Simulated scan of single mutants.
Amino acid sequence: MSPVLYALQDASLTYGRGRNKVLALQGVSLRIAPGERVALVGANGCGKSSLLRLLHGLLAPSTGTVERAVYLRQAMLFQRPFVLRMSVLRNLQLALWIAGQPWGQTRALAQAALQRVGLADLAGRNARHLSGGQQQRVALARAWALEPQVLLLDEPTASLDPHAKREVEALVEEFAHQSPTAALVFASHNLGQVKRLASRVVFLQQGCVLADLPVAEFFDREQVARHHPSLDAFLRGEAQ
C-alpha cells in the first residue's frame, strides 16, 4: 500500500449545540498521498474550509477518524494571512523558532525564504503595513521556511488583485515543482486556478464528498454530465 499523509474515515464535523447545531462535514472518507495536488471545490458553505482545518488539526472530528502521518510537517495559509505586528523578518524567525530551530539559525533561514518570494528588500518593514498580496507572500515564505510535507491553502488568492493573484499562484506552483514529494491541498472558487495547479479535485456539497476525480476527468464535461449531475450543475454555475 502506498504511503499516505492523511486518511479520513467517515469523518463528520458539527458546530454548535441544540438548535444552533450545524453539520459542516458528514461521512468524509479520503486519503491524500505525498506529491498530490488536491483542489477542494464547491459552493460557499460546502465545507471546504472546515475540511482544511480538520486536516491541519485545528478542529477534531465530531465522529469518524482523521489519521496523519507520523511527525507530519504541515503549514496552512488562510484567505486573510495572519501576520504579527513586527518586522517581516521577525515574523519568519519566530515561526522557525516555534518549530524548533535554534534562534541563532533562524535569521539566515528567514532571509533565504524571503529571497525566494521576492521580499528580501522588505525584511525590515512592519508586516502589518504591507499590501494584501505582500502579506500573502510573507505567509508563503513563512510556510516555505518550515519545509512542510503538506501545504494547506484556504482560498489564498480570493481577496487579491489580479497581479497579486498571479504572483501568489506562481509561488504556489514553484513550491509544488521544487518539492515534488510534498502535497498541496487548496480550496478555490477559481476553476482556472484549479486546472493549472491541481492533479486531483474533490467536489463537496453540503459537507459531503460527491466526487473525487483526476483533474482531466473533472473538466471532461461530457463524462461529468453523465455521471455527476450535481457537479455538472456546479460547473454550469447553477450551484454557486
Rank of each mutant, 00 (worst) to 15 (best):
G124P: 03
L114V: 01
R107Q: 09
K48D: 04
T181Q: 11
A69K: 10
R85Y: 05
L25F: 09
E217R: 14
Q135D: 03
A183T: 05
A182H: 02
P34W: 09
Q149R: 09
N44V: 10
L23W: 07
P156E: 02
S159L: 15
G57F: 03
V150C: 04
Q205F: 03
G64E: 00
A39N: 09
V168Q: 06
W97Q: 14
N44D: 11
H129K: 14
D232F: 14
Q105V: 02
L231V: 09
I32N: 12
Q93T: 11
A183C: 08
Q115K: 13
R68C: 13
L231S: 07
V38A: 15
S50Q: 04
H56E: 11
D232L: 11
R200G: 10
L204E: 01
K21G: 12
Y71I: 08
K48G: 07
F234H: 02
A216P: 05
L153D: 03
G237W: 00
R68L: 11
L51A: 04
D121W: 09
P102N: 13
F175A: 12
H228E: 11
A75F: 08
G64I: 04
E147L: 15
Q101C: 13
Q205L: 07
G57H: 04
L52W: 04
A75K: 07
A198V: 03
F234Q: 01
S49D: 01
W97S: 14
G64C: 04
L130P: 13
L59G: 01
A123Y: 01
T14W: 06
L59R: 06
H129E: 15
S188N: 07
A139Q: 06
L54H: 05
L25H: 12
A170N: 14
P81W: 02
A141L: 02
L235M: 10
E67C: 06
P162T: 07
L153K: 06
L130C: 12
S131K: 07
A69E: 06
P81F: 02
A143W: 03
G47D: 02
Q206D: 11
L5D: 05
S230G: 07
